Simulated scan of single mutants.
Amino acid sequence: MKLPVMPPVAPMLAKSVPTIPPGASYEPKWDGFRCICFRDGDEVEFGSRNERPMTRYFPELVEAVRAELPERCVLDGEIVIADDSGLDFEALQQRIHPAVSRVTLLAEQTPASFIAFDLLALGDDDYTGRPFTERRAALEGALSGVNAPIHLTPTTTDLELAERWFVELEGAHLDGVIAKPLSGTYQQDKRVMFKIKHVRTADCVLAGLRWHKTSTEATPLVGSLLLGLYNDEQKLQHVGVVGAFTAKRRAELVDELAPLLLGEGEPHPWQEWASAEAHQGQRLPGNVSRWNATKDLSFVPLRPERVLEVKYEHMEGTRFRHLAHFVRWREDRTPESCTYEQLEQPLTFALDDIVAGLGRGPAR
């Protein structure tokens, strides 16, 4: 492979801001695997955000790149899996598997798509030093008439339209909106873009804790709190964790939560977490990490008696997509009142609707 921009490439990053800034180019913030796509003839590589190779996990996209993209190019984009209701990040996570047979099967059962949103190189030309407006125009020309599963993300310079996207596209499990400076160059590993993400609150049941990685028997420290919500059958489902505490607060929580520790033989809603069969059909917190099979996901069960309010961005199926953040204890709420009904249910959109710009304005 010989291209003007060679792997590995650290993607350009975005900093969080509370509102959508004016005077920029706006596009949906996709919730998938960020990657750089390199093509030089039949040679195709996908490099992850951490500059690790992703190519072997998505053979269907390798073939699609060969069929749809220019002969020699480098694109920044996102690998996603979508159905009629939007993006499915859980299905995407399943695609990272060591067995070739499993990778091949999943490529057929849950095929992925590649959403392109920036151009780093085309032919012999390096575009990273050019303004975004020029890169976008060249990207549109290079991907003119491209077919699924390769897509060009919609963009707009209309702030009002971007604000509508921010609200409406959440139902498709998109993260929010990205704002790119029109004159900005492509700067690897620099936070020169802006991201505006959804933040909501929910009241959850505290049902367990995990010890911090630096915790010792002499100096115990709480690492994270395990959160639960009751479903329609009044079963407590594991929905996520809260873990961003100071060292001082981690130590304080040890004594604060001690009264909630279970006694010998005392039952717990997640006591079957160690059984693989118990994870079928419900969310329990003891599953093996897909990203690190040696990671200890065991937890200390607590009586599900306390309620805490947390901030979260959006849901992925029945759980919080990202780490939640502690807001406050809710002594005025009962655990039984913490159900999924409190969560907002945004509208849903199919992938084709999104990449077509929702038919709401110019995709420029």
Rank of each mutant, 00 (worst) to 15 (best):
P4T: 05
L257V: 08
V355M: 08
E313R: 06
E168W: 10
E163G: 07
T348S: 07
V300S: 03
I115K: 00
D31V: 08
N287E: 15
A24N: 14
L119C: 04
E63G: 13
D83H: 12
K235G: 04
T156C: 01
R164L: 10
H325N: 01
H151S: 06
D124M: 06
K295W: 12
V242L: 02
P259K: 12
H268R: 09
E266M: 14
D255V: 11
P8M: 12
A293N: 13
P21E: 10
A112G: 02
L169V: 07
T156R: 04
A324S: 05
G129D: 07
A179I: 04
A247W: 09
G359E: 12
R290A: 14
L61W: 13
I36N: 10
A142I: 01
C73Q: 05
K29H: 14
R250Q: 13
V146A: 09
G141K: 02
G361N: 09
E233Y: 11
L143N: 03
V80R: 00
D84M: 03
L143V: 02
H279E: 15
V355N: 03
Y57R: 02
I196L: 14
G243W: 10
A82R: 00
D84A: 10
L221T: 13
P70D: 05
D88Y: 08
S298I: 11
V254C: 02
G129W: 13
P18C: 07
K2S: 12
W273F: 15
D353S: 12
I196G: 08
P335V: 01
R130T: 01
H268V: 14
F194R: 14
P111M: 05
A116T: 03
P21S: 07
R66K: 15
T153R: 01
E305A: 07
V17L: 10
G129C: 04
A162T: 05
W211F: 15
T294I: 08
L302V: 05
D189C: 06
A116P: 01
F320L: 01
G228L: 08
D118G: 05
P220A: 13
L284Y: 10
R303T: 09
R364E: 00
P18G: 05
E252V: 05
Q188C: 13
